[in-house]
């Protein structure tokens, strides 16, 4: 398996009153054309990891790495022009809430065409936009094409958002909690779309989520993050037998429909994990 993305010793730090604080501390992994999950609780640095790969660390934060390579391109000191040719075209990012990522005064169709025209001609763009809406399981693509973001439900909006991110057929998709704002039944449909893109188009997917159960059932491999550090990397199917006490604790503290453990086991944090 050739690596699509190589990350070695990624660090993200933010200056504070008491000197710089590292929120990502030495994350390393390789990604092929597969589903990689990154799980962790809030503040674990999982979202900042995703943003740093795209060079989107919000200022005054700084991201550094020993290696950060996408398909042979060094991303560490990529120029503005390089980023322009990568972001949204070869690497896309889906964020949690479609409301903040869609332009509220433009129809979905126009936004899709604008995205599509970055890689294809004007005439072709419209056909591709409609085709893409169909591909993300929107039942009435013509109506959605002419709709404004506020006219769509959360699930619809998120699908339109995914369509926009995928219309350029990226090689790598970074999805940051793409389904957390959605209802469970809609969530499964959106995951199905992503699943198909990985298996059929050979896309690489980084799936960032707090939901251990979802990640373990959806991804191939899972990185577990705690306090900015990678505490464990496990095969998703073996997550239930994870070795690290943090991963085990995260898994056990979830209530289940069948189980009746009372009180629920809580996570006893160990200062050593963060070291």
């Amino acid at each position: 398996m050739t690596a699509l993305l190589t990350v070695d010793d990624l660090r993200v730090s933010f200056p504070t009153r008491n000197g710089p604080t590292e929120v990502v501390r030495g994350v390393s992994f390789q990604l092929g054309r597969e589903r990689l999950g990154i799980v962790g609780e809030s503040g674990s640095g999982k979202s900042q990891t995703g943003r740093a790969i795209l060079g989107l660390t919000p200022p005054p934060g700084k991201a550094t790495a020993k290696r950060l390579e996408f398909d042979g391109i060094d991303l560490r000191d990529a120029s503005v022009a390089t980023w322009r040719s990568l972001r949204g075209i070869r690497i896309s990012l889906i964020m949690q809430d479609p409301k903040f990522s869609l332009n509220p005064v433009m129809t979905i169709g126009r936004q899709l065409i604008e995205a599509a025209r970055r890689t294809s001609g004007r005439a072709e763009a419209k056909d591709r936009a409609v085709a893409m809406l169909e591909a993300v399981q929107i039942r009435d693509p013509r109506r959605v094409f002419d709709a404004y973001p506020h006219e769509l439900s959360g699930g619809m909006g998120q699908r339109a958002m995914i369509a926009m991110m995928l219309i350029t057929e990226p090689d790598l998709l970074i999805a940051d909690e793409p389904t957390s704002a959605l209802d469970v039944t809609v969530q499964i449909e959106v995951l199905r779309i992503l699943d198909r893109l990985v298996t059929e188009r050979g896309m690489g997917l980084i799936f960032i989520s707090h939901d251990l159960r979802l990640v373990s059932s959806f991804c191939d491999r899972v990185l577990v993050m705690y306090a900015g550090r990678m505490v464990e990397e496990v095969k998703a199917s073996e997550l239930a037998q994870a070795k690290h006490p943090y991963t085990q604790g995260l898994f056990k503290c979830l209530p289940t429909i069948e189980g009746d453990v009372r009180p629920l086991p809580t996570l006893q944090r160990d200062a050593d994990w963060a070291r």
């Binding site: 609780e41 707090h210 995260l250 009372r262 809580t266 996570l267």
Partner: peptide, 15 residues
């Protein structure tokens, strides 16, 4: 809330 915090709050409510 995060999963581990959820467990703590659910236990609290239960108690």
């Amino acid at each position: 809330l995060d999963a581990s915090i959820q467990a703590e709050v659910l236990n609290l409510l239960d108690r």
